[in-house]
């Protein structure tokens, strides 16, 4: 084979040095890495994270847009690659491709009340939108964050959730509702119940409320049902979907949702654009 080298390509990772690895729960670790150059991402985008020789997987970007070359991620130990990633130390290298996907456009949310409904790992990608919205109180309305997980031991970003709840003011209130399915005999200062339960009691003006949803597949159906019941239009709901992905550039075929690819057209979709696609929320 006549092999020639080229110096750029969509399959080539940039090498990023790990700055921080912190255990968040028994299964999740927080990673902060330094890229050679700023990533320049939008909220809701993702990267393909790899360990050379071991493998590559799609990982949500967990930090809001930033000017420096820092990238924050939360990685659950859920597979071959992530098991090895969990043993990495600061100073070691990971490969990063991206950012990929449509993500959220902050301008869509200007002047709006924003409701975040997140289950389990769903908080990880939506933190990339929560951060910039909370950082600019003048641009957005009432912010509500409903965050649920199975047990107190599985709650992610607890300190941040608590500090976000204190960031509200008269002009821009912030409400944070934390829930668990089961306290599992652990101390718990939030509510008990499903993440969809508080929707019924939220003070929402359907005309000026946008909702961002991210969680396990089963959550979407019930959350959308509740929201629709409260008069929220599909065009006001954004869903962040998960699919198997091996390339990030719409070519490996794994994340096909009808005529769309989750990695390029998503993973963030405005609900009215996919609600009629049978493969989207099945």
């Amino acid at each position: 084979m006549n092999a020639i080298a080229c110096h750029d390509g969509p399959f080539l990772p940039q090498m990023a040095r790990i700055l921080e690895v912190t255990a968040m729960t028994a299964r999740e670790k927080f990673f902060r890495v330094a890229l050679p150059a700023p990533l320049g991402h939008r909220p809701g985008q993702f990267v393909m994270l790899s360990l050379l020789g071991i493998g590559e997987a799609p990982i949500s970007i967990s930090c809001g847009p930033r000017d420096d070359n820092i990238l924050e991620m939360v990685i659950r130990n859920a597979g071959s690659l992530t098991q090895v990633l969990h043993r990495l130390q600061p100073g070691q290298f990971v490969g990063v491709r991206g950012p990929f996907g449509s993500g959220f456009h902050l301008a869509d949310f200007y002047g709006k009340d924003v409701v975040f409904i997140v289950g389990g790992l769903g908080l990880v990608p939506l933190r990339s939108l929560i951060q910039p919205i909370l950082a600019q109180p003048d641009l957005f309305g009432h912010v509500t964050i409903i965050s649920g997980c199975r047990t107190p031991a599985e709650e992610l970003y607890r300190e941040e959730l608590q500090s976000w709840s204190r960031m509200g003011g008269e002009r821009r209130p912030v409400t944070v509702i934390r829930l668990v399915d089961d306290t599992a005999h652990l101390p718990w200062d939030g509510r008990i119940g499903l993440v969809t339960a508080p929707i019924a009691d939220l003070a929402m003006d359907p005309d000026r409320t946008l909702v961002a949803l991210c969680g396990p597949p089963v959550m979407y159906k019930f959350a959308i049902m509740e929201l629709t019941g409260r008069g929220i239009a599909h065009s006001h709901i954004f869903v962040d979907l998960e699919r198997r992905m091996k390339c990030g550039i719409g070519q490996c075929g794994h994340c096909q949702i009808n005529h769309l690819t989750c990695c390029q057209d998503g993973p963030v979709f405005r609900l009215d654009r996919i609600v009629d696609l049978q493969e989207a929320l099945q």
Binding site: M1, N2, A3, I4, A5, H7, L12, P13, L52, F93
Partner: peptide, 22 residues
Amino acid sequence: ILFRYQTMGDEIPVVTPVLDAS
């Protein structure tokens, strides 16, 4: 083969794409 790589201790690993141009 999409690329080959070489790691070198604390140095930044080198990643070299492989393209077939025969």
